[in-house]
Deep mutational scan, measured.
Amino acid sequence: IQLFSRPDFLGDHFSFEDDQAALPASFRPQSCRVHGGSWILFDETNFEGDQHILSEGEFPTLTAMGCLASTVLGSLQK
């Protein structure tokens, strides 16, 4: 999965292949690309809070990911 700090796959980005119990504190994903398989994104660290399940594809905004525009993602799980 690739996470981007701005909508439309712009800004800083991080790529992950494994579960992340905590995303970098200063990084707030605003768009993402899922390459193969599914990922669960969580509103809180340690895989807690609301879950957003994404299958392979491109998600140019938080709302395209099924999140509110104000959502701050905290962790993710493959």
Rank of each mutant, 00 (worst) to 15 (best):
F16Y: 12
P60C: 02
G11D: 06
E56S: 10
G57S: 04
L41R: 00
N46K: 08
L73T: 09
T45D: 11
D18M: 09
D8T: 03
L76S: 05
E17L: 09
L3N: 00
A69D: 15
N46A: 06
D19F: 01
Q77K: 15
A22C: 14
F4L: 02
A21Q: 10
G37N: 06
L73D: 04
L62F: 06
D19N: 10
L3T: 00
E44C: 11
I40A: 08
R6S: 11
S31R: 03
G37F: 02
H35P: 05
L68A: 14
T45P: 15
L3E: 08
F16V: 04
H13G: 10
L54P: 04
H35M: 13
D18I: 05
V34N: 00
F42G: 02
D19V: 01
S5M: 07
A69W: 07
D50E: 15
H52Q: 00
I53Y: 11
G66T: 04
I53P: 12
I40H: 02
F14P: 02
I1K: 04
T71S: 10
G57V: 03
T71V: 09
A64S: 15
P60E: 06
C32Y: 05
C32Q: 00
E58V: 06
S70N: 14
A21C: 11
E48S: 13
F9M: 02
F9R: 05
A22E: 13
Q30A: 09
F16T: 07
L68K: 15
S70F: 07
F59Q: 00
C67Q: 02
G49E: 02
D8P: 02
D12V: 11
G74D: 05
Q77M: 10
S55W: 06
D18K: 10
Q51V: 08
R33I: 13
A25F: 10
Q77I: 03
P24E: 04
R6K: 15
D19A: 07
G37A: 08
I1C: 05
F14Y: 15
D12L: 09
S26T: 12
G57R: 04
D43P: 08
A22I: 11
F42H: 04
C67R: 07
E17I: 15
S38F: 08
F59P: 01
G66R: 06
W39R: 03
F4K: 01
D8I: 04
K78D: 05
K78M: 09
S38K: 11
P7V: 06
W39N: 05
Q30W: 05
M65A: 07
E48T: 12
R28K: 14
N46L: 05
D8W: 11
E48N: 14
V72A: 14
A69Y: 10
C32F: 02
L41W: 04
S70L: 03
L54W: 03
E17M: 11
L41N: 05
D50F: 08
Q30H: 09
L10K: 14
C67N: 03
G74E: 00
S5Y: 05
R28L: 09
P7N: 08
E48W: 04
P29R: 02
A21W: 08
L62M: 06
R6N: 08
R33T: 06
R33E: 04
T61W: 01
S38P: 10
V72K: 15
R6L: 14
P60Y: 00
T61C: 10
V34I: 12
F14I: 15
H13N: 12
D50H: 15
P24A: 04
G11S: 02
S26Y: 13
F27D: 05
W39P: 02
L68M: 14
C32H: 09
F47C: 04
L23R: 01
P7A: 09
A69S: 14
G36T: 08
F9I: 05
E56P: 12
Q20D: 03
F4A: 05
A64N: 07
V34F: 02
D12W: 06
H13T: 15
P29E: 01
F59C: 04
S5P: 06
I1T: 05
R6E: 15
S5H: 07
D43S: 15
P7M: 08
Q51W: 11
G74Y: 08
F16R: 02
D43Y: 06
R33C: 07
T61L: 02
T71K: 10
G37W: 00
S75P: 08
R28C: 10
R33G: 03
A22R: 13
L10F: 09
L41E: 00
S31W: 09
P7R: 09
L54M: 07
F42S: 05
G11Q: 00
L73E: 03
L54V: 15
T45S: 13
S55D: 15
I40G: 03
T45R: 14
L54N: 04
D18Q: 12
S55G: 13
W39T: 01
L73P: 13
F4N: 02
N46M: 07
S55K: 11
F14L: 15
N46F: 07
F14E: 08
W39M: 01
L62N: 05
E48R: 14
L54Y: 01
Q20L: 08
Q20N: 05
T63V: 13
G36V: 07
T63S: 14
H35R: 13
D50I: 09
D19C: 00
A22F: 10
D50N: 15
G36P: 06
D19G: 04
S5I: 01
L76W: 05
H52G: 06
G66Q: 05
D8S: 09
T63H: 14
N46Y: 08
Q20T: 11
S55F: 09
V72S: 14
L23K: 03
I53A: 11
F47M: 03
G57T: 06
A22Q: 14
I1D: 03
F4G: 02
D43M: 07
D19W: 03
T61G: 05
A69V: 09
F27S: 03
F59A: 00
K78C: 09
D50A: 15
L68I: 13
A21L: 09
E17K: 09
G57I: 03
Q2N: 08
V72E: 14
T45H: 13
P7G: 04
Q77L: 06
C32V: 10
I1V: 05
G37R: 00
N46Q: 09
H52E: 06
G11C: 05
L3Q: 00
G36R: 12
L73M: 09
W39L: 02
H35K: 14
E48L: 11
H52F: 13
G57P: 00
D43W: 02
L76V: 14
D50P: 12
Q77S: 10
E17H: 15
F9D: 02
A22T: 13
F27Y: 04
S55I: 09
P24C: 02
